[in-house]
């Protein structure tokens, strides 16, 4: 008994002593990385998230917001699963963050083997929203998405949409539109964006829901045309393209999100550092140029807002995935 009591006293004294000598900035706002940070992503070199992570690091360096030397790490297995597992291992490590997309949410919902889900991580910031547009071959007769849908109603199952995996935003949109309009068409999953455009240009498939930057050069060359924006309002860069709702097709809009998350249970001061850093980035010329060139929407949210937004996205995706016939496990 005595020894226990003595131990408690000593321990308490030590805690108080530690608190007294600890510099304020460790407990307060002053966190700053002391060495180069690893930025994790779930793509292979050259993939979407890989490029986003590299662009972030490049812009931060260019704007002198960070010292040079930050590394981009590729953890590509399992559509986000490996990246999530890696980030979870880094709990407590102040020098690792990761970029994420909708894929993390979808993988969390559909792959029962994943040990971690998007909810396990500390939300840091949302950076961009990527709009989706409906694209057809340049010499196709459809003037808008409505024409395509009407034609699909006339010949059910004969028109073909090319896109990513069944759980991608493209296929979710297809299911939503099919459900609202009663039209039916096929969906073919083609592995890479390049091959999807090749299939569209070759006339093997009829429509592709793409990101504007993927097809802008083909639009300029007249090879393809954009017939609808799958967004709430018209896109700044495409003022003449009407939105899906303007065309009379009323579906919920799903948007591809890109941002950053940290390891589980990140202390408040570190979160504040990342919020501040990325907020400052969004004010720079490099960022504005990036947003314009890639035809995305700059859409900063802080940690708390992102957390709420991710919950909402998770619920929306869960419902849509179920409707799309994908097995949801969580």
């Amino acid at each position: 008994m005595k020894t226990t009591r003595a131990f408690i006293v000593i321990a308490a004294t030590m805690v108080v002593a530690t608190l007294a000598v600890t510099p304020v900035n460790v407990l307060g706002q002053g966190f700053k990385p002391t060495r180069a940070v690893d930025v994790v992503n779930h793509s292979r070199a050259g993939g979407g998230s890989d490029l986003f992570a590299r662009a972030l690091v490049q812009m931060l360096e260019q704007e002198k917001l960070i010292p040079p030397g930050w590394q981009v790490l590729n953890k590509a297995a399992g559509a986000g699963a490996q990246a999530m597992a890696y980030l979870a291992e880094k709990k407590g490590d102040p020098h690792t963050i990761s970029v994420f997309t909708n894929t993390w949410v979808v993988t969390s919902l559909t792959v029962k083997e994943t040990t971690y889900t998007i909810d396990d991580f500390t939300p840091l910031v949302r950076m961009i929203l990527e709009p989706t547009v409906a694209v057809i071959k340049g010499d196709s007769l459809y003037k808008n998405l409505k024409d395509f849908v009407e034609d699909a109603k006339k010949k059910p199952g004969q028109l073909i949409q090319v896109g990513g995996t069944v759980s991608s935003v493209d296929n979710l949109f297809r299911n939503l539109i099919q459900k609202t309009t009663g039209a039916k068409w096929q969906y073919v999953d083609v592995r890479s964006g390049g091959e999807r455009i090749a299939n569209l240009l070759g006339g093997h498939m009829h429509i592709y829901f793409a990101q504007p930057a993927e097809v802008s050069e083909h639009v300029r060359a007249g090879n393809v045309k954009i017939i609808a924006a799958l967004t709430e309002s018209r896109l700044e860069g495409l003022p003449n393209v009407s939105t899906i709702k303007e065309q009379g097709i009323d579906v919920p809009i799903i948007t591809q999100v890109r941002g950053a998350v940290g390891p589980p249970a990140m202390p408040k001061d570190r979160v504040q550092y990342w919020e501040g850093l990325f907020l400052r980035l969004t004010k720079t010329a490099s960022w504005k140029k990036y947003v314009k060139e890639n035809e995305v929407e700059s859409a900063y949210l802080n940690s708390e807002q992102l957390g709420a937004s991710l919950k909402e996205l998770s619920n929306q995706l869960r419902e849509t995935l179920k409707e799309a016939g994908v097995k949801v496990v969580r």
Binding site: T110, E113, S167, K327
Partner: peptide
């Protein structure tokens, strides 16, 4: 989007 023969190993996805 279903896993095949992965024997519970994420790395095999």
């Amino acid at each position: 989007a279903e896993p095949r023969f992965i024997f519970g190993r994420l790395e095999l996805l």
